[in-house]
Nucleic acid binder design. Structure first.
Lengths: 251, 251
DNA sequence: ACGCGTTGTTCCGTGACATGGAACGAAGTT
DNA sequence: AACTTCGTTCCATGTCACGGAACAACGCGT
């Protein structure tokens, strides 16, 4: 029924099979893979066997999952790895100061990709996942990135319909533009229930020299949201990280 | 010169290209990839182009790096993801209590694979990397895993030559067996400069029900190593995580 | 117990497409 | 300017991926 991105070279088919697992992640049966990819069952059977052989897929009984080799390779992606490594101490500081959920994200096209997310025992219900992407327009990290990535990008984003994750997500271009301007003067992005109901967020951009390379944020249950206490911590972490990156991390 | 694992299906060749990046990670030129894989240049050229098209490889100028899609897929590997998520709060506690480098690892075959590694501003020089694997026999996490994974595995490991990461790594089977027995009675694994010079480590196994699913550790510069203070923290974190996993995480 | 729907799996003739040697052009090196 | 080494394109060859059809192994409802 799905008639997904179907065929082409063998690689594309293999990729299509692996793509089935994002973002659902969950184990799939052969026929589910066949249906989701639009590929005939024997083809999926053979390819899946090959992928298992390579360690890219794992198979227990009749269920397929992503394999350990992908985790290994994914951990080596250089830009992600380096940035995460240098950012981690600052994220830890921020966590220790606030004891709330911390995010680190970079921009990729018109979306934000999360590189790290740390939290304590009380886990918020959030749409963000490490490695996952969300719209720039309705997340704290995304808005911080967007506000400091040049006017062309802002125009590009505003020229399209604005996606929304919750009823509070900003869908009016004019309102978003105003919000971005406020972010530019204050250096901090606020977000209230635009990404997840009941959760507010405050974010700050991270610079390497004069280009925006990332943003970090702290997400808080709405009931506990007190900008006066969080803002200095977030700003401090972002500035500290930016100072270390000044020499730094290549694009 | 390398005559690596050469050819076969197209997937194997593509995998061979990607494997070039572990653990070096660094960017490679076309001819380097050709040499390392043993594949002819035109073949690598075509495959690399396909991989770039899929987002598995990135190309800037004439240099190839691993692509963002791999990071995304790697973050979805279920066993890794779930365990890391539930373990994170306990790792944070342990970090906050010790302010030292924390590791979380699982066993995969005869090696330990690290799922998480958090640290502060002072980063130790360690061979461990997230997603990377090391021998079970010369790391704290590895020894904790090995000591609680059954006698057959111990015999299997001891029947082979013991690898070493430093001159202090244990290479005598008898000594290792004794060390493992001590770990079994104390519930804690000690490791002194066996993985990296100047670094000591104390680790504890993590159970889900009655099976060992992971181990966590704290690594400390030898000068600061004081087991009396670290041991209770490590044990507490491991027990806390085990308690949460009791219901839990499937194999 | 039986039949039916659905699953995972094997088989195999066909042809699409990956293959890699050879040739080319573009840098960088001596 | 002659040479080396790189990335890239071309194309005739034959390999190997392809997927329909047939088979086997469950699970299920009555």
């Amino acid at each position: 029924m799905s008639r997904n991105n179907a065929s082409g070279s063998m690689l594309e088919k293999a990729a299509a099979i692996l793509e089935c697992f994002s973002p659902s992640g969950g184990p799939f049966r052969l026929s589910e893979l066949s249906e989701r990819t639009g590929l005939p069952k024997p083809t999926v059977h053979r390819l899946a066997a090959d992928l298992v052989h390579l360690g890219w897929l794992e198979r227990s009984g009749h269920r397929y999952r992503l394999g350990g080799k992908l985790f290994e390779l994914g951990s080596l992606v250089p830009h992600r790895l380096d940035l995460r490594e240098t950012a981690l101490p600052f994220l830890q500081d921020l966590f220790e100061a606030t004891r709330e959920t911390i995010h680190l994200g970079v921009r990729e096209g018109l979306e934000v990709v999360y590189l790290e997310r740390i939290h304590g025992h009380e886990a918020l219900q959030l749409p963000s996942r490490i490695g996952g992407s969300l719209p720039l327009t309705c997340t704290g990290v995304g808005k911080a990135l967007l506000a400091f990535s040049g006017a062309e990008l802002t125009d590009e984003v505003l020229s399209r319909p604005l996606p929304s994750l919750t009823p509070h997500s900003i869908t009016d271009p004019a309102r978003l533009r105003m919000s971005l301007e406020k972010i530019q003067v204050s250096g901090l992005a606020y977000e209230e229930q635009e990404a997840a109901p009941g959760v507010s967020c405050i974010a700050a951009p991270v610079f390497a020299g004069d280009t925006t390379v990332a943003a970090l944020s702290v997400a808080v249950p709405r009931a506990r949201f007190s900008p006066a206490q969080l803002a200095p911590a977030v700003r401090t972490a972002a500035l500290g990280l930016s100072r270390v990156l000044r020499g730094g991390v290549g694009v």
